[in-house]
Design a protein around this nucleic acid. Structure first.
Lengths: 344, 344
DNA sequence: TTGAAAGCGCTACCAT
DNA sequence: ATGGTAGCGCTTTCAA
């Protein structure tokens, strides 16, 4: 039956105290070598498995950190998680992951789970539905440090590793302008997520800096659902004065836009140029290969983990640290208009 | 300030016993409504957060299950995890995830973590390095039920939800033969993973059934690393008698092969047809769109979760249940050599 | 070097 | 309806 082996069983079997067993198991030098060997052997023989519940309860430390991500859909989180795991492992921490599935409700539940398990720290990327921070504030009461990565909550002053989305968007738009485009549209995610808010502002400011008037029809703030993206693209191409370039501000919107334009027989980049904000390697494989703003994915995860480690070690209440990394422009076919069809 | 609030604190504050607080918090009907209200209010005011460590230790049940996946790279696991979460949530279970990163060592560590946390059950997909089951056997000693999904260990008789890879591969090859190909190559993963073993056998048996002799040069068993796949493709195209079709048995190999063939200027499907085994939606977007064998991804996760629930409820030691789902052939451009362009 | 015992936060049994 | 208390499995003083 479910009577799992405890140190008590080992103690009983060897006729020694549980204190000694505990010490032996932990490799304490304050226990006779012979005894230690016997304990180890018996533990192995009985298939002893330490109970982290009891251990963590007693020690009030779990040596485990939790990660919350919105979904695994994008390559981005896969790589970031690997980076976090690698880094935390160096410091002896375990990592458990929860997936919010882009649902606020699930995210709250995930955080509850992690909090109730008393993880030592949390690294999170908020869901696209999330626009309040109440659940994250609960962590403060438990003294569980928190680091956001990639997606943060603008109003909540927490530590975070992000990409300079404002700058990234500006770079993208500047590239489109220099490639001869003037009527540039953006398909963005919800502005309650700081990353999209920033990307929209980078877009707007870059146009302004180039003395290109803003056109509200060209700015599509969506919830990133497939339908919303389809609607945005449909609307853009059916405008009286359609854009000559589209900047898509996340993975899905990039590839859906590409598929739709192709389906409609719209030539890329001749009729409409496309620049995406993504780290999906497939940007390179599709046809035409898509020009993208790429994030330093592994670096983000690594830095987030290192920041958390720092917070974990300095158990004082430090003020939030925010680090912004630069994203890089990778020029591919989707934004290089053939000279023959160049417009004025 | 790091002394987190416990039911004891609530009891003290209200001058009642901790038993009553515990009952009130659990919404027991054996406690006065007024008291209950007071307890709730105080709990909220003090920012009480239940301690799952203590609770689970006491109850010897965690209401949490663990998932181990090799990596998030593929869309497959994202969807499967969503399915598992959805299903487990219906039954009141939390889900925590570990990523083995395709590393045997990490997988062992992950399992250790889950076991020490005494999760009620585990759903796992083994890493490509894994070829022994010792760590999974440890779960038996703790009476933690286990369900494999997608990738299983052939020699370990555990419950599993898999796809009928043998049949899927056969379908792919039959399609290639019927499309006029005779010299069909396969780029597969390591045969120690049952899924690849099965795909190779489906390939071989289908050729035999069609009286096409096997050619060892056409069978590439790789470790799925990028380099190994590159080597395989290079070797195939440089054969004296190169294949007229390639069946790639996983996601990466499919897209890498596509990219390489295109780079070499080899026409797909005219010179070499391509069929991949994948659930990546991008198979549809790339050029040419790739014919694939698609797995019922959500269904796999859902069934794995339901099977685990079943094992959890019937606390008897049941014999392993294995369910195989069928994969579907989706014909796209990469395998249609004539001018007719079919789409699903 | 070893053991006894308290206690981490909680539930559940047994009283009252 | 409420309280007292044992104990889940473990670590860690304090004694011996």
């Amino acid at each position: 039956m479910s009577t799992s082996i405890t140190i008590k069983d080992i103690a009983k079997q060897l006729n020694i105290s549980i204190s000694t067993v505990s010490r032996a198991l932990k490799g304490s030098h304050r226990v006779n070598a012979t005894t230690k060997a016997k304990v180890m052997k018996t533990a192995k023989a009985l298939n002893y498995q330490p109970n982290a519940l009891a251990l963590n309860l007693r020690k009030r430390k779990t040596n485990t950190i939790g990660i919350i991500i919105p979904g695994f859909i994008v390559q981005f989180y896969s790589t970031a998680i690997s980076a976090i795991q690698d880094t935390m492992a160096l410091h002896g921490y375990n990592v458990i992951i929860c997936q919010s599935n882009e649902s606020y409700k699930t995210e709250v539940k995930n955080l509850q789970t992690l909090a109730s398990y008393r993880v030592d720290g949390v690294i999170a990327s908020v869901s696209k539905e999330t626009n309040n921070d109440e659940h994250y504030r609960q962590l403060e009461h438990l003294d569980i440090p928190l680091v956001f990565f990639n997606r943060t909550l603008p109003q909540f002053n927490a530590s975070a590793i992000t990409v300079d989305d404002y700058d990234g968007a500006k770079t993208a738009i500047q590239h489109l302008i220099e490639s001869g485009n003037q009527k540039i549209a953006i398909i963005s995610g919800p502005a309650n997520l700081e990353i999209y808010n920033n990307r929209i502002h980078g877009y707007m400011d870059c146009l302004k800096n180039n003395n290109i008037p803003l056109n509200d029809n060209y700015i599509k703030e969506t919830d990133l659902s497939v339908q919303a993206i389809i609607d945005a693209v449909e609307n853009l191409v059916s405008l009286e004065n359609p854009p000559d370039a589209i900047f898509t501000a996340n993975d899905d919107s990039t590839f859906i836009t590409l598929a739709l334009l192709k389906e409609k027989g719209i030539k890329i980049p001749e009729e409409i140029s496309l620049v995406g904000y993504t780290s999906e390697p497939k940007a390179e494989y599709v046809s035409p290969a898509i020009t993208t703003i790429e994030q330093p994915t592994y670096e983000i995860g690594k830095l987030a983990a290192e920041l958390l480690i720092h917070l974990l070690k300095s158990n004082s209440n430090q003020s939030a640290q925010i680090k912004k990394l630069k994203a890089n422009l990778v020029v591919r076919d989707s934004s290089v208009k053939n000279n023959l069809v160049q417009k004025n």
